[in-house]
Design a binder for these strands. Structure first.
Length: 259
DNA sequence: ATGACACGCCGAGCGTGA
């Protein structure tokens, strides 16, 4: 009986955070690492430190904004960048790899900017397109793990002040409904399998000293189909890198599965 | 609070993030 560990981390620029990510991976050695907001075009992605740590490096980036990277200890059998079908996405936000028999979606869901804007409508449409893709290509009987920065907090216990934040960005009924529709495929929230209580967040605003006050949002998620969710033994939001010099505004989230 | 901080942009503020 072994373990499979998957880390998801919005790093807010892989080049600015190279030391933090390298240190975290050297210490924890997760089997699969899903990074978001790498903010670098593929030709300039700093692959070498990760190759030296023993990872296969699959990247999907662009200039300045967005970008995702999936690092795997073993070589993926399949890799897909962006949506499987139809027109190219507006930004690089999706990597879908099959590794060790597990399909791993690494997502950077659109931010949405603010209510009533075109980017907000784009976010909703993007989530519906993802739902349709997963439902039409895969079965909930398969081992599928969907991780990343969803830019949505689903429940009251996922935000520090639900009454004040209700209906505001990241916590609107429209965003929650689109995420819920994706989960109806047959996904379990692996963190909530182990921790029902409030006060556990993954993103803290730099500007409000949110981390120091534990005023955050749980918007980075690990969702898994039944077979994988059953085998999830823990999910950890690691606050340690947030204490390092010039940290990302997101914590790394690591899920452990018995395999 | 129309705020804050941090990023990449190439060289200064601006757009963006959430």
């Amino acid at each position: 009986m072994g373990e499979l560990t998957i880390t998801t981390w919005n790093v807010n620029s892989i080049r600015a955070r190279l030391d933090h990510v390298s240190e975290y991976l050297a210490e924890h050695e997760p089997d699969i690492v899903c990074l978001q907001e790498t903010k670098v075009e593929d030709a300039l992605f700093p692959k070498v430190p990760f190759l030296e740590l023993g990872y296969e490096v699959t990247i999907h980036g662009g200039r300045a904004l967005c970008g995702v990277a999936t690092l795997t200890k073993s070589k993926p059998a399949e890799t897909h960048s962006g949506f499987l079908e139809g027109p190219d996405d507006r930004h690089p936000r999706i990597l879908n790899v099959l590794v060790g028999g597990v399909r791993v979606y690494n997502l950077y869901v659109p931010n949405g900017t603010s209510l009533g804007t075109e980017p907000f409508e784009f976010k909703l449409a993007w989530l519906e397109r993802l739902r349709e893709e997963i439902a039409s290509h895969y079965s909930p009987e398969e081992d599928i793990v969907v991780v990343g920065d969803f830019n949505i907090a689903l429940e009251d216990r996922d935000v520090y002040d639900p009454d004040a934040l209700r209906g505001k960005m990241l916590f609107t009924d429209e965003e929650k409904a689109r995420l819920q529709a994706i989960l109806e495929f047959g996904f379990t929230d692996c963190f909530r399998k182990h921790e029902p209580g409030p006060g556990h967040y993954t993103w803290f605003d730099y500007r409000t000293q949110g981390f120091e006050r534990n005023e955050g949002f749980r918007i980075d998620h690990v969702y898994a189909t039944g077979s994988m969710a059953e085998r999830c033994v823990k999910v950890v939001h690691d606050p340690k890198p947030r204490g390092w010099d010039t940290p990302s505004d997101h914590l790394p989230v690591t899920a452990t599965f018995s395999v």
